[in-house]
Write a protein that binds this DNA or RNA. Structure first.
Lengths: 116, 116
DNA sequence: CGTATACTTAAGCATATGCTTAACCAAAGC
DNA sequence: GCTTTGGTTAAGCATATGCTTAAGTATACG
């Protein structure tokens, strides 16, 4: 089991490559094989396998071999983990902004009321 | 200007390191100096500077030097870009699931109505 | 002016990443 | 059974990343 921080490391690292994001985009429309994932990419099959391994290690993708073809599907909980982290940071920032707004509003009122 | 894909590369890459996420977490509560960002991290100041450069290059953070201290603040639009990409992938996946659900529902109805 | 503070630059180094080519293996198709 | 198809393993290599220490610069303080 990966701890939270290591899981985020692996997830964001996996997301940081255009080939891997392309694979995830394809997979977001439904499961597919390795060679289907490779088709639009300008690189060798072993390279695609390595990207796939990164995606699988991060928990963003799950795969399963049936006969000689490996079927790959997206794991939406992997996406959610990353999405939640980003959302929390953004929310904290916005809350701070709200408090700042309240503070400025209060100052304005006090200036008006007490003629500072 | 970075194109969309390069911007996502830089953003997710920046997010893939625990020290940089720690810095972003701190910054989500408000602007601060470099040495303040460095305080909780077990590394040299130059190392922190390098992480900061990565964050700034990705557009997740903006900095500005006043006197001898550099003030750093989070750039929420950087977070949004990454968040939106994740959200789109997850949404596509969920829509596919909905369509699959509809299909299965249709099949069930047809079986019931026409006694297939 | 002299010293402390807050970075900043440069160099060097170990490990990680992203790719390649060259075999290799095992299920399908004929 | 022999070949094609779909994937896998291994090795090697160039570049990128994450850190370090040592030395520098530019404010601010007393």
């Amino acid at each position: 089991m990966l701890n939270q921080s290591a899981a985020l490391d692996a997830t964001f690292q996996a997301l940081a490559d255009p080939a891997r994001r392309s694979m995830l985009s394809r997979l977001s429309f439904g499961p597919t094989s390795v060679s289907e994932l490779a088709r639009p990419l300008k690189m060798s099959l072993p390279a695609v396998m390595q990207h796939l391994a990164v995606l699988e290690a991060s928990g963003l993708v799950r795969t399963r071999k049936l006969g000689r073809v490996r079927s790959c599907r997206i794991e939406p909980r992997g996406l959610s983990l990353a999405e939640r982290w980003l959302n929390q940071r953004r929310t904290e920032w916005e809350q701070r902004f709200d408090r700042l707004g309240d503070y400025l509003e209060t100052m304005k009122k006090e200036t008006r009321d007490h003629g500072q």
